[in-house]
Design a binder for these strands. Sequence first.
DNA 1: TTATGTTCTTAACCCTGCCTTAACCCCCGC
DNA 2: GCGGGGGTTAAGGCAGGGTTAAGAACATAA
Lengths: 226, 226
Amino acid sequence: MNRVLLVEDDLGLAGNILDYFELEDMVCDHAANGIAATHFQQANQYDVIVLDINLPRMDGLSVCEHIRNEGDDTPVIMLTARDQLEDKLAGFNKGADDYLVKPFAMAELVARVGALANRRSSNVNQLRFANLTLTIKPQVAEVEGRPIKLSPITYELLKCLVRAQGNSVPREKLVEAAWGEDAPESNALKVHMHHLRKALTQAKASAHILSRPGAGFYLTTETTDG
Amino acid sequence: MNRVLLVEDDLGLAGNILDYFELEDMVCDHAANGIAATHFQQANQYDVIVLDINLPRMDGLSVCEHIRNEGDDTPVIMLTARDQLEDKLAGFNKGADDYLVKPFAMAELVARVGALANRRSSNVNQLRFANLTLTIKPQVAEVEGRPIKLSPITYELLKCLVRAQGNSVPREKLVEAAWGEDAPESNALKVHMHHLRKALTQAKASAHILSRPGAGFYLTTETTDG
DNA sequence: TTATGTTCTTAACCCTGCCTTAACCCCCGC
DNA sequence: GCGGGGGTTAAGGCAGGGTTAAGAACATAA
C-alpha cells in the first residue's frame, strides 16, 4: 500500500485521480494549493508526491524546491499542461523525479507513481519453498522471517534447490551453480550439503534435503521419518 | 560522475546520445543488442540503464525482465517510438522506472537520467539517518544537534552511506565518492572506515556501520548484541 | 621561516570465517 | 568381507575485514 500526496487545484481532476488511486489501493491526501501542500508534507511521510505546477498561493516549482531544502527527498512527479522543453527542465532542476504532461492516461500516472514508490521499498525478487524465503539481493535466506546464516556457497546451493521446487537437481548442476566452471576435486559438495542441512534443521525449516542415489538432491516437506 | 549503460541498435542515434552524455560528464557503455546488454549488466555496475525496446537478439522488455530477475534494481529508462498506453504499461510492468517516447530532446533524456541516478538526493541539503543529520552546505555532521568532527574524506564516506539509507554500498562506490578517479592503492578505505566508526560511537550515534562480506558496507540502527 | 596540528597514506599485524581436503563412518548389495 | 554411494567430522590454509602506529603532506599561526 502506497501513501500519496496529491497537490492539484482543479477539483474535478483531483477527484478523478483520487477515485482512481483508491481503486489501486493507494492512500491519498489532497492539497489544493501550495502552502497547504508544504503543511501536509511536513506533517506526514509519503511514498510519492504528485504535484501540479499551476497552483494558487505558491506554485509547484517553489513547493518542490522548498521540500528539497527541508531535507525531504520524497519522489515528486510534476503534473502540468506545459509541455515545452524548458518547462520540463525547470521541473527536474527543482528536484522533481518525473514530469507528466496533461492530458494523460490515469493508468500511466498510476504506473509512474508505482515505479517511483517501489524504488525505495526495495521489493526485489524472492524465491519460496515451504516456510523458507530466499531474497536475491541482498543475499539473504529466511524461515518465517528469521534470517538463516548461510555462506555464499551454501546460499547458492539452496537457491538452486529452491528454484527446482522439489524436483531433483543433479550433482553437476549444483556444482555448476556454486563454483561455475572450475569446481574443486574432492567431496566439497558433500560437505557444503551437510552444512546446508544443518543450517536448515537448526532454523527449523519445514523443508529438508533428500538425495536420490545416483541422480542428485531435492527439497521436500515430507517428514518421512519412521 | 554517473555511469550509464546505453542499449540502442540504431548506431546513429547511439552516437548522438554518447556524444551528448560525454559533455554531461557521464561515463557510458554501449550495447547494440539485448544479449550484449545482459553481459554488460552482469559485468558492471551502472547508475542508470537506457534501454531501447526494439533490439536484435533479445528485445528490451525481456532484457529488463531478465535483469530484474537477477536481483539487479538499477534504474531503467525505456526508450522507444511506440507511444501507445499499453506499450508504456508493459514497460513499467517489466520493472522499468521511466518511459521516454522517440523522438525526444537530448536535454530531457539527460534530465531524466539525472533524476533517476542520484540527482534527487543531491538536490537535498540535509540528509538523515537515525539520529544523525548531514548538512551538505556547509559540510557538517550532527547527532541530535551536536556536531561531530569529521575529516573531509570520512564526511564523504558517511554521506554516501546515508544516501543509501541502509542499503549496502559497494567498496568501489565509496572509493569513487571519496577520491574520484585516482584512489590510493592501499587499505586507505579500511582505515577511514575505522575512523568513521570510531567517530560515530564516540558521538553516541544510534546508527553504526556493518559490512556485508564481499559486497560492501551499510548503515543500520540494530544493536546486534547477543 | 619555524612550529604546531590535522589529515591522509602506507604498512604491518591480528582475527575471524569460509573453503578445501582428507580422513573416517554407515548402510547396502554382492 | 568388500566396494561404493552417501554422510560426518576435524584440521589447515587463505582471504577479507579490522586495528594500530608511523611517517608524509598540508595548512595554519607565530
